[in-house]
């Protein structure tokens, strides 16, 4: 348990979401996994879904995500979280099922599973952390690494002749009919964090409405494996990643647009 400061005479304006477990994480200082976790937990709190939700954690730095969310959870094999989530959701169609996957997991070894979960219009939500690198294994090239990006397995920089191009998963999945919602957001500054939270909420609302697969791709930092300070990492997302991975909505199902229109009025 974390130590808490006494709160007499204080007005509480910010607290740990109930869905976020009271536990130290293993994430490196400056990594945006913590931000993403908190946003998801806030959304699940706000939608009242904590005791309806089942998390499918994946392989990568977020392998212990099940320790950080106070919900029913399982840990999938590398890349297979969408398949495992399919098995759970088909058996419990009334529950909220989400996967939390990194870029190696989702865009490389699990590319087939994510495409088919979208194509079936599976009513699950995927939070996709794109930090352009394999974090847990120590900084190898990911399918999302930028052209020229030096990693421990592309020491001369990513060469497209050798290793192909950065994969644009949010755009790719948007092109699949079963996808209800596919957007890209970033976690590099406060304004973008707020926008990311709104997207995460919409993604879960899409699942609640039962209108198909929803995914939020989040541009994220990896200060340790990028060899940068946390601050420089956020700047690198803004200056290097966003130009390659444009932020935006690539698919918003008509039903969702109508719902959003109603809520604005």
């Amino acid at each position: 348990m974390l130590d808490t400061l006494p709160l007499e005479n204080e007005r509480l304006v910010y607290a740990r979401p109930r869905t976020l477990a009271s536990r130290y994480t293993h994430y490196c200082p400056g990594c945006t996994h913590g931000t993403a976790h908190r946003l998801i937990a806030e959304v699940l709190d706000e939608l009242g879904l904590q005791d309806e939700t089942i998390l499918v954690a994946s392989v990568g730095c977020s392998v212990f995500a099940y320790d950080y969310f106070d919900v029913d959870a399982c840990e999938a094999a590398h890349g297979r979280a969408p398949a495992m989530a399919t098995g759970i959701k088909r058996y419990h169609p009334d529950k909220i099922v989400f996967t939390y996957q990194g870029d190696g997991d989702l865009a490389s070894i699990g590319a087939a599973e994510i495409i088919h979960v979208a194509n079936r219009g599976e009513n699950i939500t995927t939070i996709f952390i794109n930090n352009a690198i394999y974090g847990m294994t120590g900084g190898q090239m990911a399918p999302t690494s930028l052209i020229g990006q030096k990693t421990t397995s592309s020491p001369f920089g990513r060469d497209t002749q050798l290793a192909g191009y950065p994969m644009h998963m949010a755009e790719l999945l948007a092109g699949i009919p079963g996808t209800a919602y596919s957007v890209r957001r970033s976690l590099h500054d406060a304004r973008h964090v707020i926008q990311a939270k709104k997207a995460i909420k919409t993604a879960f609302e899409a699942q609640m409405a039962g209108i198909g697969f929803s995914i939020v791709e989040l541009l994220s930092t990896c200060p340790t494996n990028w060899g940068m300070t946390p601050g420089d990492s956020c700047d690198w997302v803004r200056d290097q990643m966003v130009p390659v991975y444009p932020l935006g909505d690539f698919k918003v199902a008509d039903e969702l647009q109508q719902a959003r229109g109603r809520s604005k009025r």
């Binding site: 399982c74 094999a77 398949a83 098995g87 759970i88 058996y91 087939a112």
Partner: peptide, 22 residues
Amino acid sequence: VFLQAESEVAAINMVYGAAAAG
């Protein structure tokens, strides 16, 4: 529940998920 998976790899991981779900 019946589902024809995209591969045997996906099928067994769906099985794993459903088993975990009871």
